[in-house]
Design a protein around this nucleic acid. Structure first.
Lengths: 356, 356
DNA sequence: CTGAAAGCGCTAACAG
DNA sequence: CTGTTAGCGCTTTCAG
């Protein structure tokens, strides 16, 4: 492979000039630039990235650390990040932690070794709890998961508010005994739980919750088991909310087994829209996330952060969209006396709100 | 950040010695090694990857180019490749082409620039058609898609055979008018079509096919439209086969709209198992692919190819697993006279067959 | 506007 | 077994 020296020789100029036109820098004579360009073409020259990176101390690489690549949410995030990154001539290194904090720490180390320009991270709870932006030698943008206290760029859903709206919807439809099944090992699960609690409290209803314990990999099965047990003990409520797509899946599996129909025998709602949510009986009511937008916003935030390292941290909160479907259809003869004074939803920390 | 010189100074040895212990090379005195190790610890030294790569001309990086990251098939492949790669201290650069040959060519160029150690590629049809391993300055392992003629390492499903078995299953269940909907823009679609044709021919049945045209991104909708039209024109057969998960999804959507039940009014089968295939009515009969294994095998093949550049190309053919479910339940009063002489399935080019 | 020259941090002969 | 040294290919002052 030709190198910069060959190009310089071929063009009859110095390697400095070649480097200059390569970098697209101004201040190069028109003829010089032409000759260099021709030589590059002629030799099919491609700059050596390792050498460029070594010398310039810039890798133009983004690290993307997601917690579960099998979750369609994160694959869509990856797609968005990649699209954006390659448009900006940056590379992406993708790492999947499978919700394992150890793997996560390992990959964060790897990012340091790679001297990436920045990282987009969906942190596990333990990492998020101790998260200090200053612990990392590169900019970090959090996606999907972020505490109110965390001081870092972040792009998240209005989890609490969405859960609130979802719960209120169920209440409006006439349901009262509403059970919330969630994953307490993720920040999103907790925030959604909070929204549910607020909604129930606002209406003077009693909360009922079930927690899906770690390890998250078995989410579907655990949700399944939880519902099966409720059935066995005849403790089923009027309605069920699953705090993410996997939990909803487990719930449906369990209900199927005992041939319980929704919404006739039990109503159902959850988070995350998937191809199959419309195909289940009368369709599942869900909060749909603007996933691609989230990934895109995160990348933009990161690129801006790389350009301006010291500007204050920004948080972008995107709104979930309530998609009402048959699984939460109105129960006949229902009244909604409690909703007269319809309190406003709880405030999320939305310094910068975009549309959904 | 400390560099190798700092470590050498701190340890009181030469940088050559440091480099040697870093590379884990033998022939370093015990005490020297100890001192170096301690210095590395003390300084929290991390070798500069760019410098290592520039000097050693090895990047230890695998390029993974998939055609559709939203397809669960490819996300699982990614997971497998990453797991394996990081176990072998290699990095992964992930690229998603969205079935766009131009993007694919672009990314293959990028791989050249990155001087990757090797690439795992699921090629689009145009690229596959012209595929010459010698066109690339790095080893390439094909996944999922591969012609019989292609001379390259590859890991694929026994597409033709699986489609054959799936079709025969439907015939055995008493179905005769079986329509095959497939995506002719992918090698897999074509091979599966071939298996279907052979099975039908073997039983003396007439084939009926519909082709989902490019662009593939709209697969679900196009499949949906195709079935809707069949319904309108009252041309529905006894059974439908979809050549991949997206097509099956489109079929189900269309059947739902007109409230056609399967298998009572029309039977259904397809490729790719997904979480929702069991939740649709009586469950969908599918060929399930050993996806993780495919990704793993591809990575192994690539690593071996990197180690032994000139060994002959190998092709690994993994078997799909027929998961019989309600959507293909036996039609009452069916006979299967044609299956007496049950011919063997067509031979796939399986130099090396693994278990599924 | 252009060129000469000094490294970036590391590996791998080679010499001792 | 260990140290010296010459680059890998490029960017970037600094002179001219």
């Amino acid at each position: 492979m030709a190198n910069i020296k060959d190009v310089a020789k071929q063009a009859g100029v110095s390697i400095a000039s070649v480097s200059r036109v390569l970098a697209g820098r101004t201040g190069v004579g028109k003829t010089t630039r032409q000759r260099v360009l021709k030589a590059i073409q002629a030799l099919d020259y491609r700059p050596d990235l390792s050498a460029q990176r070594l010398r310039s101390r810039r890798t133009d690489t983004i690290g993307l650390i997601v917690s579960d690549i099998r979750n369609p949410f994160f694959t869509e995030i990856s797609r968005a990040v990649e699209d954006m990154a390659y448009q900006h001539r940056m590379r992406v290194i993708l790492c999947n932690t499978d919700e394992d904090p150890e793997k996560e720490a390992l990959y964060l180390d790897l990012m340091r070794d790679e001297k990436v320009s920045g990282v987009i991270l969906s942190p596990s709870l333990p990492i998020l709890a101790r998260f200090q932006i200053s612990d990392y030698p590169f900019p970090v943008v959090l996606v999907d998961r972020c505490d109110r206290e965390t001081t870092a760029d972040a792009v998240v859903l209005d989890n609490t508010d969405s859960a609130y709206r979802l719960t209120v919807h169920l209440i409006e439809q006439g349901y009262r005994r509403i059970l919330f099944i969630y994953d307490a090992t993720s920040a999103t699960g907790r925030q959604r739980h909070q929204g549910y609690v607020t909604a129930m409290a606002t209406c003077g209803l009693e909360t009922q919750v079930k927690v899906v314990p770690t390890p998250v990999r078995a989410t579907v099965d655990v949700a399944h088991a939880i519902v099966s047990e409720l059935v066995r003990e005849q403790l089923l409520p009027d309605a069920l909310i699953g705090s993410n797509g996997l939990i909803v899946l487990g719930i449906i599996q369990a209900l199927r087994e005992v041939r319980l129909q929704f919404p006739e025998q039990i109503a159902l709602a959850g988070f995350d829209d998937s191809p199959w949510t419309q195909l289940q009986g009368p369709g599942i009511t869900v909060i749909a996330q603007p996933v691609y937008d989230i990934g895109q916003a995160a990348t933009e935030l990161l690129l801006q952060r790389i350009a301006h390292p010291s500007q204050p941290a920004r948080r972008i909160v995107l709104s979930g969209e309530l998609r009402k479907r048959g699984s939460s259809a109105r129960r006949t003869g229902a009244t909604d006396e409690c909703l007269a004074g319809n309190n406003p939803p709880p405030q999320e920390g939305r310094e910068h709100s975009l549309t959904s």
